[in-house]
Amino acid sequence: MLRIALPAALLALVAASPARAFWEYGHQTVAQIAQANVTPRTRAAIRRILSQQALLETPECPVGTIEDASVWADCVKPLKDAAGKSRFGYAYSWHYQNADVCAPFDLTPACKDGNCVSAQIERDVTLLRDKATPARARVEALVFLIHFVGDLHQPLHAGDRHDKGGNDLKADYGIYAPPRFNLHSIWDGPLAERAISTPPSLVRRYPAAERARIGKGTVTDWSRESWEIAHSAYAAAIGGDGCGPVPARAALDEATIEKMAPVSREEVRRGGIRLAKLLDEALG
């Protein structure tokens, strides 16, 4: 029996939006962890930049708080211009990088022309560091950065099996089996919810030594780490070899959920601490 029951509203949302990115809970928690671990100077800089949210011209998607900012990049996806064209369609591929989990780690094909999540994280940090960056671009870089670090730490945004990050792999989550449930939506939603809501709270100030240990490495290093976890996610879903035959429908039973929830939880924690590091480097 699952410890956390999914409400009907959540099930309806899953059925309607199977490809939604990491949902609000994951992104907001990553942002809250970061806010708790940046320096006071960085925190003030974040508030100052977000106070210029009107420059984005997206009143439907406010960014007055870091929690709001963390989901802005998803909120603006459906927005269209006067001609009916997507205003932010150019950024769709920035939310992920489909690095093949069944081949040696290589970001080159997944990040062609910088159109992937890790390349955009590095770009946003560069824009925020540059004092000459125009104000609007600065606000946009901040809200993209806050969101994309969360995306990178959802493993199925960092690796896949040529199946759109698990979106094409139908899957059951314990006793829940909506027709459009898939491996990606499970890691975006119910697994992340269970992982984050398990006590104690992830949102707290972490010791300096722990922040330094988790924050070590580069964005590429973190990409490799998430890619490796993506392989584990496939292995858990299909029962053994993450590169083995794919069933028509995978199943995460209670034992598998118990095993993978702490993995998801640790990814959220790492994302928050690493976002804090990048924000301090860019703004502090």
Rank of each mutant, 00 (worst) to 15 (best):
A5Y: 08
G239W: 04
I186F: 00
A192P: 03
I257L: 14
G242P: 09
A195E: 14
N115V: 03
F88V: 04
F148H: 12
I49D: 13
A91Y: 01
R213S: 08
K112G: 05
N182K: 07
A54V: 13
F88P: 05
E140S: 03
F144S: 08
P78D: 04
V125Q: 01
V246Q: 08
A177C: 09
A12M: 11
A171Y: 00
V14C: 05
V149K: 01
D113H: 08
H162T: 15
K112V: 12
I49T: 07
L169I: 10
A31T: 11
A195G: 09
A261V: 14
P199K: 11
S118G: 02
T220D: 09
G159I: 07
I4C: 14
W222K: 06
E60Y: 10
Q120N: 01
R20K: 14
E258V: 15
F148G: 01
G26E: 10
G240Q: 13
A251L: 14
G26R: 09
E67I: 12
S201T: 15
D168L: 14
L10V: 13
L50T: 04
L191V: 13
A110I: 05
V117A: 02
P245A: 15
W72G: 05
P40W: 03
D68S: 07
F181A: 08
R213D: 07
L50Q: 05
I186S: 04
V125S: 11
D81W: 00
V30R: 01
G166Q: 11
G240P: 05
Y173L: 06
D106G: 10
V143T: 10
V263M: 10
A235L: 04
P245N: 12
A132L: 13
F144P: 02
Y234C: 13
T126R: 13
A236K: 11
R213W: 01
F105A: 04
H157E: 06
Q32D: 12
R47G: 12
G159R: 04
T198C: 15
G150M: 06
P40R: 03
T133D: 10
G244R: 11
P199Y: 11
R136P: 00
Y96W: 14
K85P: 00
A5T: 15
H157R: 08
L275F: 01
K77W: 12
A236W: 01
A12H: 10
A110S: 08
Q32E: 15
D124V: 13
Y176G: 10
L169S: 09
V219M: 03
I273H: 01
Q120W: 03
Y173P: 02
R180S: 15
A16K: 07
N167M: 15
L13F: 15
P78Y: 02
L79G: 11
P7C: 13
Y206E: 04
G239M: 04
